[in-house]
Nucleic acid binder design. Sequence first.
RNA 1: GCCCGGGUGGCGGAAUUGGUAGACGCAGCGGACUUAAAAUCCGCUAUCCGAAAGGGUGUGUGGGUUCAAGUCCCGCCCCGGGCACCA
Length: 816
Amino acid sequence: MSTSYNPETVELTAQKYWDDAASFEVGEDADKDKYYCLTMFPYPSGKLHMGHVRVFTINDVIARYHRLQGKHVLQPMGWDAFGMPAENAAIQRGIPPAKWTYSNIEDMRGQLKRLGYAYDWSREVTTCRPEYYRWEQWLFTRMFEKGLVYRKNSIVNWDPVDQTVLANEQVIDGRGWRSDALVERREIPQWFMKITDYADELLAELDRMPGWPDSVKTMQRNWIGRSEGVELSFDVIGEDEPLTVYTTRPDTLMGVTYMAVAAEHPLAARAAATDPDIAAFIEECKTMNAQEATLETMEKKGRALGISAVHPLSGEEVPLWVANFVLMSYGTGAVMAVPGHDERDWEFAKKHGLPIRQVIAPTDGSEIDIDEAVYLEHGVLVNSGDYDGLDFDSAFNAIADEFERTGRGSRKVNYRLRDWGVSRQRYWGTPIPIVYCDDCDAVPVPADQLPVVLPEDVEVTGTGSPLKDMPEFVNTPCPKCGKDARRETDTFDTFVESSWYFARYACPDSDAAMLDSRVQYWTPVDQYTGGVEHAILHLLYARFFQRVMRDEGLTDVSEPFSNLLTQGMVLKDGAKMSKAKGNTVDPQELIQKYGADTVRLFMMFAAPPEQSLEWSDDGVQGSFRFLKRFWSAVVEHVAAGPACAVDRDALDDEQKELRRKTHQTIAKISDDIGRRHSFNTAVAASMELLNAVNKFADESDQGRAVVHESLQAVVVMLSPMVPHICHALWQQLGHEEELIDQRWPDVDEAALAQELVEMVVQVNGKLRARIAVAADAHKDVAEAQALGNENVQRFIAGKEIRKIIVVPGRLVNVVV
RNA sequence: GCCCGGGUGGCGGAAUUGGUAGACGCAGCGGACUUAAAAUCCGCUAUCCGAAAGGGUGUGUGGGUUCAAGUCCCGCCCCGGGCACCA
């Protein structure tokens, strides 16, 4: 073998070996301890970007590490192949979405292979294939039978020029991205999945998921947003139907000075019929962006409707308003307003000159001015008649009891979480398996008629819907009565595909059922890795789907992912890499220049996985330099002839010291990778050990033996990150058996023992000296040695020692 | 606006349970090798004062707790992610 490091030769050789030996294809072996290591599968956008390289490398390191720990590891890969970019490419370049997608998959698979990831390619899953999506169509029809899906009207962004529905990101400043037309809010019937049926379970289980980051669990808790409140009704003067509202603050009920309804509310519509100003306001609300971020930050506007409700406790009349921040689709489409104790109500009242009434006072008896500032805390009731003096809990219960007694309201648990709207008015997605019949209404497609195949040979123009224009797709007999009927032309949200692919990897070829018994062996996923941007939606939908599959009897598992690692983005010049900013770095070019191992190493070394990673071309150079040094250290050591075994009793002090460093490093890297996922410090520790080996110039038998032990350990421990070079160096070190089948090195506790340890001495918390103390020395000995130190004496001379703190093996702090 | 993160040398980052701030690497500076350059190797490198020994300052910002705070608590500023049709 040549003495200089040639990454291309080394990497292609290793990859060919793994390929020929099918090293990473795994079956279900009941005697082995399985480890399912998964990364969020990519959208096949055309080319791998650095973000992909980062997350895939992180996951590959974890997978290869666990294999060296003796686990039976499954690491699959596949494609989240439906989605908008394929349609955009079709519009711009006239290539059918299917053709574009399949060709991207080919390219990206090649790139992944060149990076040397330990994937079981025999399990590859592609979501735009009928053999995949037929099973989610099937599950949808099962959910239909169980009443877990339903149809209701909901709002979409309608582009009146292109006659099409736009995604939020396609609406720029209220206008369509292609047509520049003013986008309208339009209500259309859409399919929903009842994720709220599982809200309690999804929430409760978070407390029993130690393998997930607290930040993600908190985000999901807040997203589900369980609240306990009271639903109560207000009579409306001149109306038969009372107005129902939900509040979590019934204690502030006596502070209600007005109420607000949504623009689409029937009461508002009735008022608009006679009042052109209200009609114009409602019209204005139609062009309003419905995104939560916009709703919360926009100017709060409203109009008085000229009608009043009756306060259920005081009998007082409170005016009714229509307001742009109340949405018909959330809750009852109406809210009670307590300007004294709600931020938004306070601002609205100030703006429109509505009365503000204080009904809560601070518990400590201090005075507040409700005209100056809103008071949001829980406190003691005032100006509330019989309820005066009660605290939050007593008032809540007293008022809730009163409403339940009179039948005008009841306690209610509410969730911020809304049901999952899965309908998309797009071509490139899974057809929703429903047929509309004039007699039988919406009929699910029977299992034996699935899949409903998406026609792949289409022309996408960006105007209208391709499926609607295909009579051969749309026209079909009703599965129930046989009469002429029409297929649903909407497709699923692509989050549906990504909500169960992790289970399908266990049995990708199962053609008799969605999942088969192999799923019992592999799931749950032991380690799941992906971007934080998926912390809520994808991960919550996947947790929901897992339970739906469980309740369908397909699996016993409730939680799909035991451990979760959320990785940060790859930045360049402080910003996310994007074509628009022109700050992208092509992994392909770097691999050609330095090899896959250098790219992988830099990714692992430059930042801890959870943080964003700042790209640096110079840093890549440094990683390449390190691999060259690593290569020559091993090659030169081997060239000097064979090394004998370490004889622990025959080592001199320096040999002992290198050996201590070796075993300290083994302990550190094991912890860094296995427990902390701190790959950057694991790499740094390897560099330190290699630096120590390079400085160690002892050609004696035991000297070479100790070096041999170090190098061997580094080769094994770096192999999860840089598998190709380690594969070659392991052979250089004279091994016949393959590195991927080795075991992680063990720590020799005896080698860690130290006679002297360094302790620092502080005076009043400031570092004044370092002393060497026997490792097993008593506190008093360390204390005496510290006080005897010359520099310490300078700072304590003539002062009274008030206290001495000794932290064994670490420091002595003298307080004067 | 709300929820979740983050802020440490010229740069990426380290400091794991409140106990030596700046490991490791990059860049820079000095040196060796070379006809020269590249590559490689060796040394220095938070900052200020000092010849040195040593000392002062220092982890976005203002307070607080503690013998001891990058780490814990309270307020503020800035940056990033998510907010239900980007994936």
